[in-house]
């Protein structure tokens, strides 16, 4: 590569970085505080607490980072936040009791409607309903595969992972797992899924196409009510929020063996991982705080006070 080409490449890279300049902020929904806490990702200082409406739970980032979406469960709507100005810019109806959602790379939101036994797909640009998908009772966790071709919705009271084809928005497979499945996530190649069962106290590894269960790990601590699950950036480890075990479990993604336990605050539910994979945030609901975890040292480096009963967390990086 010639030096002029190199300079041009560097310039283009800098421009691209600037255009999508992420704020580095961490956004946390407070289920009982009816607010969103905004934390500076570098200093761990709270920048602002934004009143958002009754019972905010799920939270997600637009694919281009331009908007933050918040499921305001008690008001049956999605509120939209500007991550730069920290203003609520608009909201749109989202079906009954939106609990949580995942954002597809095309921008659509896949939302679980807890009281309606269905998932709904919304286009946040227009606020219009794109599709409704019938699922089991008390749908909860939603995940979308990195290739954008599959979604998983968990139904807590019918103990299933519903595999949904995108863009058809049709259920193509249903996998029975342990009692009260709460969250799921995909491997980077979209072929595997990992799911937690809160009452079953387990993590399952599933082949997405065949629906075959490839592995199961019961978390030995009987207080463990696993909720959120994420895959590390290198794909080698899983992070599992342990609920009332007040612990984030680190599992080997291949064998599902527990390789580390990180003590955090009480009733840990939500997790978010930084883009570089080095920082993990957990919402410690009963302690009204977020724990910041160093994923190399497997230790808590900071605790940040939030509003009441923090639930979901997302990082704008």
């Amino acid at each position: 590569m010639t030096s002029s080409k190199l300079a041009l490449t560097a310039l283009l890279a800098a421009l691209a970085l600037d255009a999508g300049a992420a704020t580095g902020r961490v956004f946390v929904t407070n289920e009982k505080g009816d607010s969103v806490t905004v934390i500076d990702g570098k200093t761990n200082k709270v920048e602002k607490t934004i009143a958002i409406g009754a019972r905010p739970r799920g939270i997600g980032l637009a694919p281009d980072g331009s908007e933050i979406y918040v499921a305001v469960s008690g008001e049956n709507k999605i509120a939209v936040l500007d991550p730069k100005t920290l203003e609520v810019t608009r909201s749109f109806p989202s079906g009954d009791d939106p609990e949580t959602f995942a954002v597809h790379k095309d921008g659509h939101l896949y939302i679980s409607n807890e009281n309606d036994a269905k998932a709904s797909v919304y286009d946040p640009k227009t606020g219009k309903l794109v599709a409704e998908i019938e699922v089991g009772i008390e749908p909860e966790g939603v995940a979308i595969s990195p290739d954008g071709k599959r979604a998983i919705v968990t139904s807590e009271s019918t103990n299933m992972l519903h595999i949904i084809a995108i863009p058809e928005n049709q259920v193509v497979n249903n996998i029975l797992v342990g009692a009260r499945p709460r969250a799921a996530t995909f491997s980077a190649d979209s072929k595997l899924a990992y799911a937690t069962s809160e009452i079953g106290g387990e993590v399952k590894k599933v082949d997405v196409e065949s629906g075959t269960i490839l592995g199961r790990m019961s978390l030995a601590d009987d207080k463990a009510k696993p909720k959120d699950v994420l895959v590390s950036r290198d794909g080698k480890q899983l992070y599992v929020a342990g609920g009332r075990a007040n612990t984030v479990f680190v599992l080997d993604a291949n064998t599902l063996e527990v390789v580390a336990q990180i003590g955090v605050g009480k009733r840990v539910w939500g997790l978010a991982l930084s883009r570089d994979g080095k920082r993990l945030y957990s919402t410690d609901g009963a302690d009204n705080q977020v724990s910041v975890i160093d994923t190399e040292k497997h230790s808590v480096t900071a605790k940040v006070a939030t509003g009441e009963a923090p639930w979901g967390v997302v990082i704008d990086d």
Binding site: G136, S155, T158, M160
Partner: peptide
């Protein structure tokens, strides 16, 4: 009724 909400998928 809840069993049927599960069974219809299986």
């Amino acid at each position: 009724a809840e069993g049927n909400a599960q069974g219809k998928f299986l």
